[in-house]
């Protein structure tokens, strides 16, 4: 009887996600342009990725992206959350403002940064140039494009982490904090010995999610640079998207998608294990 309650969710999920996902995995072994009949080519799609410079750039960029997002926004979020705990007064006001970038559409955030900050014509960079301070548009240089994009994503993202960490910090038992204060711990000691260990499960969970999300990053890269200039900011998801819809190499796109999923899968295993404890309670 209650099985019926599950039917709508599972039906939609299986038709939209599971079946197409299984098809993607099998398509990775075919050559297909999306229209004619697929041709089985074995491992050729994967073998073609091996010497492909763009593929390795994209993979490296995803790894760099993961490294950036495992450190900078998590540190910013933790620091801001701990300070909110110290400040107490006004913490909900700060929280709302920090969170605000998260509710703005990625397409809009991307264009505001592109036009109003990075642009040498209409942005802050242009203004600085006119004052004699040379700042190039990071998005137009191969050496900086990825970091220019990452900065935008960082701006949009760190407040979310701050809010999550602050919610977790408020659950740290009062007595532990007071005991540390009585023994004369300063802010950094309190953070290192009491607060961080107190919210370790939340930090771990966010780090796992960061790894998963870092391999999915798409919107900001696609809107800001389309992976350019000269593929310098290409990531796996934009590479797959372009292969499928611009080059009509769906088999190659599927192979890249499988690579993305392998990285995600490892992190997902950790994620489910971390969450499983919650369900056994």
């Amino acid at each position: 009887m209650h099985c019926l309650y599950l039917v709508p969710t599972l039906l939609i999920n299986v038709v939209i996600i599971l079946i197409p996902a299984l098809m993607t995995i099998s398509l990775a072994f075919f050559r297909w342009d999306g229209i004619s009949d697929p041709v089985f080519v074995g491992l050729a799609n994967f073998r073609a990725l091996w010497p492909d410079r763009v593929f390795w750039t994209a993979l490296t960029n995803n790894v760099i992206w993961t490294a950036i997002f495992l450190t900078v926004p998590i540190a910013m979020g933790l620091l801001a959350a701990a300070m909110l705990l110290v400040a107490r007064r006004g913490s909900s006001f700060f929280q709302v403002i920090y969170f605000l970038p998260m509710v703005i559409a990625t397409a809009i955030t991307a264009r505001v940064w592109q036009g109003m900050i990075y642009s040498p014509v209409s942005g802050i960079n242009g203004l600085l140039n006119r004052f004699g301070i040379e700042v190039a548009d990071p998005l137009t240089r191969t050496s900086t494009a990825l970091y220019g994009i990452a900065t935008v994503d960082l701006w949009h993202w760190w407040g979310f982490l701050c809010v999550i960490f602050f919610a977790a910090l408020r659950q740290v038992p009062q007595e532990q904090i007071e005991a540390a204060r009585l023994e004369g711990a300063n802010f950094w000691q309190l953070m290192w010995y009491v607060l961080l260990p107190g919210i370790r499960p939340t930090i771990t969970l966010m780090m796992i999610m960061t790894v998963i999300w870092s391999f999915l990053v798409f919107d900001f890269v696609y809107i800001l640079t389309q992976g350019g200039p000269a593929f310098s900011s290409e990531v796996l998801s934009t590479l797959a998207y372009r292969s499928a819809f611009y080059d009509l190499a769906v088999g190659k796109a599927a192979a890249v998608a499988v690579v993305i999923s392998l990285f995600g899968l490892a992190a997902t295993a950790f994620y489910i294990r971390a969450q499983a404890k919650e369900f056994d309670r």
Binding site: T24, F215, S261, G264, Y271
Partner: peptide, 11 residues
């Protein structure tokens, strides 16, 4: 946690 790219193309 499934990447959109994993089901986007056949879909």
């Amino acid at each position: 946690t499934a990447p959109i790219q994993l089901f986007l193309f056949p879909l």
